[in-house]
Design a protein around this nucleic acid. Structure first.
Lengths: 356, 356
DNA sequence: CTGTTAGCGCTTTCAC
DNA sequence: GTGAAAGCGCTAACAG
């Protein structure tokens, strides 16, 4: 029960531009103009209308506006649970930057298994102005978007649409160079799901880079990007061979590998085995792990994706341009330092130090 | 002219119900009915219309529908970066469950500092049917929603609206009971930001629970929920006193405390010092930490929030009901086990493992 | 600069 | 069960 809590009990139906117009004694179009910048309206009238609007608590309806304008100011973002779990910042940054551009983020979450067949109808139902896909969308969905002139930016994957990706291959090459200089000769690889484009790129990047040094990357086992998956893969791998370094397709698995080594397999990292990751998630910097990895420039990636989509919506960009953002090697202590090897490696607090 | 297949260059304007009606040789209202369940329409006609629609690639417009129906099927979700970072699953689960109910999640991200004054206009602009707020919304915003009959569910906080929260107090009481049984006598607390409702509840819960055992919780220091913040707070705390257990307001800080102890302060956990968290994020289960904590039932919380909001939208629920979901104690190894002699047994400055 | 008119794509009475 | 007409709240084209 309780008292009516301060809020007005009268059932206000939605306040419309018409109501404001009446109160201000002007036409509806005047109200419309008062709420759009660059419309031709006298400052005087605008002020009067704004006052009336405030009095009534009026805010223009984007829904009605979308209907006539053919611009909803809605950006569809398609993501899977993996995206949310492994790179939580991505969704936040996307939302934030979409907002800064004056739009709103409409989220389409897919279970990791779902291929996304079902979403296009909903995408169209809400008249999204554009789509950012952090999931591999089926080609038919992409084609349907193209047919309706809805621009799509693929995030960290490629396909028949524009895309923004981290340059995984180059990042891997830098990492591998570092590893080889540090003495790695018998590397193994723990990949993500076999159909994850990002994992494939990283695996191929690593394999090619090692090959360029005359080193074979073997064995390669697949896992699921998770900590538990990394642990299991490490156990499986180390039961059949003894690599000097395990290169992982992402940080989360690498942390699982380190935990498996230390807590189950009785192996020291980095003395007995080097471990590397990819992403540079925040946990990798924690001193318990100090994971050597490759940083994805998340914020730059999302910013570029949002900007690119904006340009596409305005018709200012090529519909299939690919933008690659550089990755950055982050050397910490999960592999022995350069020129050293084995148990006598220097305590590597020195490694992460920035040159003056 | 236009072939029906994908690579058509003709700029298809939006396919409308009118187009479908013409192709099927029926009225627009028939098309409308064909796409709403429970409308009175013959199965025969529905089939014919669906076929025509498929041929044209027609999907009904939720935007236009919203205008007439006064139901946008849009749910606004307000979150800060903290939410995204510390509990990434929340956003995913919310999105997923909102979808299952046939709606879509429109995300409003706020910088951690922003109070959210600016968002209500946008909320109204998109005619959201309801709002889930994982941030403390100013009372005026809540009042504005109430005036417009837009139901709001507060997530893990209370205020003049319905709410769904984890029962932090009871969770803390269970944790404290466990700690006291395990020998804790001189606990300290690391809280989150002083104005974070969740942190306040957990702090008060801990303080009251310890008081019931005749134990004072002291000192209490505030930090920022982050790993780095936890590390810093631990250093600060242990410089001035030597508690036997540090209770943290969330897991992330607790992990920072553990890292600080082991890697900077030369203290063993749990032998020299017990550490506990709250949330049960995935990292807490990792063997490097094995953090004793209290699990928030994230999925249940989000599910309840979504369902409750649905009921509110349908007018089936009390507008200010509060639902509390039970937390669950998760005992791992970051505090000494029951029946073992507590940390008092160990001389304070005894251990020196990792000299700085 | 301002008002009038038409209509975005849909659902809804209301007749039939 | 089906169709005709009216209009959701707004902006765009055109007069004035």
């Amino acid at each position: 029960m309780g008292q009516p809590d301060g809020a007005d009990e009268t059932a206000h139906a939605r306040v419309t531009s018409y109501d404001v117009a009446r109160l201000a004694g002007v036409s509806q179009s005047a109200v419309s103009r008062a709420f759009r910048d660059g419309a031709s309206i006298s400052p005087d009238m605008r002020a009067r209308i704004q006052r009336a609007a405030r009095e009534l608590g009026y805010a223009p309806s984007n829904i009605a506006r979308a209907l006539i304008t053919q611009r909803s100011r809605l950006i569809g973002v398609v993501a899977t649970r993996n995206t949310a779990r492994n790179n939580p910042d991505i969704l936040f940054h996307l939302g934030h930057q979409i907002q800064e551009a004056g739009n709103r983020m409409l989220v389409f979450t897919l279970p990791d298994t779902d291929s996304g067949e079902g979403i296009p109808d909903d995408l169209f139902a809400y008249h999204v102005d554009g789509v950012i896909a952090a999931t591999s969308l089926p080609d038919e969905v992409l084609a349907a978007c193209a047919r309706r002139r809805i621009p799509v930016v693929l995030f960290n994957r490629t396909g028949p649409a524009a895309s923004v990706s981290c340059d995984h291959a180059t990042g891997m090459r830098d990492l591998v160079s570092h590893l080889v200089r540090s003495g790695t000769r018998t590397p193994a690889f723990i990949a993500g799901p076999a159909d994850a484009p990002v994992s494939v790129e990283r695996l191929n990047g690593a394999r090619d880079a090692f090959a360029a040094h005359g080193i074979a990357l073997d064995p390669v086992v697949h896992s699921d990007y998770s900590h538990e998956g990394g642990r299991a893969a490490a156990a499986q791998l180390l039961a059949i061979c003894r690599p000097d370094t395990i290169v992982c397709a992402n940080d989360t698995m690498a942390l699982g590998v380190i935990d498996a080594c230390r807590h189950e397999l009785g192996l020291r990292v980095p003395e007995d085995l080097g471990v590397t990751g990819f992403d540079n998630i925040s946990q990798s910097a924690w001193p318990s792990y100090a994971l050597t990895t490759v940083a994805q420039p998340f914020e730059q990636l999302t910013r570029t994706a949002v900007r690119m989509l904006g340009e596409l919506v305005e018709g200012e960009a090529m519909p299939r341009e690919r933008r690659l953002m550089p990755a950055r090697l982050v050397v910490r202590e999960s592999v022995v330092g350069e020129g050293h090897s084995g148990p006598e490696a220097i305590p590597a607090a020195a490694q992460e130090r920035n040159p003056p």
